[in-house]
């Protein structure tokens, strides 16, 4: 009765561990396979969705805005899966947006950077030094992006419950450690953590709905109550508030909507302490 979220610098390594863990626990494995459904639902290409998760920096093909939109679709799908409970989630960047839910065990699989550079150099046919430089740059760009988008530094160990270094611990051993850890009562779902997860899922659904028209909106849910922050000009205020309220109130699970115009001084300050 838990959720295990596995993230890693190298997708393939994370995937191996996640699948083995799912097998060992008898949980469902939720990986990039769910992106097909998302792609079909929103008429997108699957590779673009993968790029939105993987790529370090905005590319010519993908602006920051588009990436934000794609991430919103992915979030909606992933959080929907998570509500089902008993899953191992991997490769969907869930460590960036599933925060503060006590029954989600956050695992980071560490790959020795030198080994990674060697492998990268081999597969991409380049010198190890060049690969090292390339990967370091990519890491930095990714850090910048995740921080600007999610206020989250994914290399910060304090953001995870468990870090497993594959250069020191065999995959089977890693799976054993993960399964043992997740069995602790600490990672069992409870009223509060389920509520937190439901809130995140509802917020994600609302965000997707607002994405087209009001991409700058920020959504917070609290037990069916929505607080939506949106940036805009004062003259639009009344119209915008009404439009957002109408959109959001029709979403199942929503019973109250509050729209905050411009930026909220208090919450900004409070959020800086999360």
């Amino acid at each position: 009765m838990s959720i295990i979220n596995i993230s890693s610098d190298v997708y393939e390594e994370g995937r191996k561990i996640a699948q083995k863990t799912a097998e060992a626990m008898g949980y469902a494995y939720v990986g990039r396979e769910i992106l097909r459904g998302v792609a079909e639902k929103y008429h997108l290409s699957e590779t673009k969705l993968v790029d939105a998760i993987d790529k370090a920096a905005p590319t010519l093909r993908m602006s920051l805005k588009l990436r934000k939109q794609l991430m919103a679709y992915i979030q909606e799908a992933v959080l929907g899966e998570m509500l089902k409970d008993n899953i191992v989630c991997q490769g969907l960047a869930a460590h960036l947006y599933v925060l503060g839910v006590s029954h989600v065990l956050k695992v980071r699989i560490l790959i020795d950077p030198e080994e990674r550079a060697r492998n990268y150099a081999q597969t991409h046919n380049m010198s190890v030094k060049k690969a090292e430089k390339l990967l370091a740059r990519e890491k930095k760009l990714r850090q910048q992006w995740s921080f600007s988008e999610f206020r989250f530094d994914e290399t910060d160990p304090s953001k995870y419950d468990l870090m497993v270094s594959l250069s020191q611990i065999d995959p089977d051993e890693a799976v054993r450690i993960i399964t043992e850890t997740v069995c602790s009562r600490k990672f069992q779902p409870m009223n509060y953590s389920e509520k937190c997860l439901k809130d995140l899922e509802l917020a994600a659904r609302v965000r997707v709905l607002l994405m087209d028209k009001y991409p700058s909106s920020r959504v917070q849910a609290n037990g069916g109550n929505l607080i939506i922050e949106t940036l805009g000009l004062t003259r639009e205020k009344r119209k915008r508030e009404a439009a957002i309220k109408e959109l959001a109130e029709n979403i199942p699970g929503v019973n109250y909507v509050e729209v905050h115009f411009i930026h909220d001084f208090f919450r900004q300050a409070a959020e800086s302490f999360r």
Binding site: F265, F266, Q268, A269, A270, E271, S272, F273
Partner: peptide, 8 residues
Amino acid sequence: VRAVGTLT
């Protein structure tokens, strides 16, 4: 702002 954050 930080102090307000702590208080909040």
